[in-house]
Structure formats: structure tokens, C-alpha cells
Simulated scan of single mutants.
Amino acid sequence: MNLYAIFAIYFLMWVISAFIMLPFGIRTPDETGEVLLKGQADSAPSNFRPGLVMLRATILATILFGLYYANYVQGWVTLDMLPGYSAAQ
């Protein structure tokens, strides 16, 4: 696997991980006891911390990419093992 493919796959896993991590740890103004500003949505987060989201996404993406790369090298699951798919068509 070349370096560009590694970077592209890791980047895609990181973006997906970031979206997965977004809702964790978020509190609304109702939960924190803050007063809503005029025009503010009820569901707007009052304690959004993008640095923490990026850290969690990086950790999750690194774990997922490690599993993906280990499978790529070791061949634990291949396309031939998937039901309904045959590589030799």
C-alpha cells in the first residue's frame, strides 16, 4: 500500500470518527442551567470543545486504521470470504 493511499484512508476514517464523536459530552443550556440568548436554538451546545472532539477522533481513527492495516497485511477478512461476492467472475 503506498503512502498516499494510507493517508487518504486514514483521513477518511478520521472524518467519520469526528462525526461519530461530535455528540458525546455535549450539554445544552437546559442541562447546564444557562439562559438562552435571543435567537439561540434550544439544542445549541453550551460547552462545545472542538479540541476534545479532535483528540477523540484521532484516537478512534488510529485504532480503526490500525485494525484495517493489520487486516490488509494479515488477510484476516478478504472479499472471497464475504457472502454473495466472488472475486473470480
Rank of each mutant, 00 (worst) to 15 (best):
Y69V: 15
S86A: 14
M1T: 12
F19H: 07
F19E: 05
F11R: 04
D42C: 00
V77D: 07
Y4A: 14
M21H: 00
L67M: 14
A8P: 01
F11I: 03
W76E: 01
F11Q: 06
D30W: 00
T62G: 07
E31I: 08
S86V: 13
T58M: 08
L55D: 04
Y85M: 13
M81E: 14
A44M: 10
A88T: 13
S17I: 02
L82N: 08
L3R: 14
Y10C: 01
V35H: 12
L79G: 02
P23T: 01
G66K: 07
L3G: 00
L3Q: 06
Y68G: 04
T32Y: 01
Y69A: 15
A5V: 02
S43F: 11
L67N: 10
G25R: 09
A5G: 10
L22A: 10
G33V: 04
P23D: 05
L36P: 02
G75Q: 01
L36S: 11
P29E: 03
A8F: 00
A87K: 01
L55H: 02
G51W: 03
D30T: 01
F7V: 15
G84S: 05
T62R: 03
F19G: 14
N47K: 07
V53A: 09
N2G: 14
W14K: 03
S46N: 09
G39M: 07
A61W: 04
P45N: 08
I6T: 04
I16Y: 03
E31T: 10
A88W: 09
N71G: 06
T78V: 11
G25N: 05
A88R: 15
F24E: 05
Q89I: 11
Y68D: 13
Y4R: 15
I26N: 10
D42H: 11
G51S: 07
I20C: 03
W14I: 03
L12Q: 09
F24A: 10
L82E: 02
P45H: 05
V53F: 03
I20W: 09
S17C: 03
I63F: 10
M81F: 09
A57Y: 08
A8K: 12
A87Q: 09
F19V: 13
Y72A: 10
G84H: 04
S43M: 12
I26P: 01
V73A: 02
L37P: 00
G51E: 10
Y69M: 15
A61N: 06
Q74G: 04
I16A: 13
F11A: 15
L64E: 01
L79E: 11
L82G: 04
Y68F: 15
N47S: 07
W76M: 03
S46T: 10
P45S: 11
W76A: 06
Y4S: 15
L79K: 10
A57V: 06
Y72P: 00
I20P: 00
W14Q: 08
S17M: 05
L64M: 13
P83M: 09
R56C: 06
L36E: 11
G84I: 03
P29Q: 05
P29L: 12
V15A: 13
I6M: 05
Y68S: 12
G75S: 05
M1V: 12
E31A: 15
R49K: 13
L52S: 11
P29V: 05
W76P: 00
P83L: 11
L12S: 13
F11H: 04
P83H: 12
L82C: 06
V77M: 11
R27P: 00
M54W: 08
T32R: 15
F48L: 15
M13F: 12
Y68N: 07
G75Y: 04
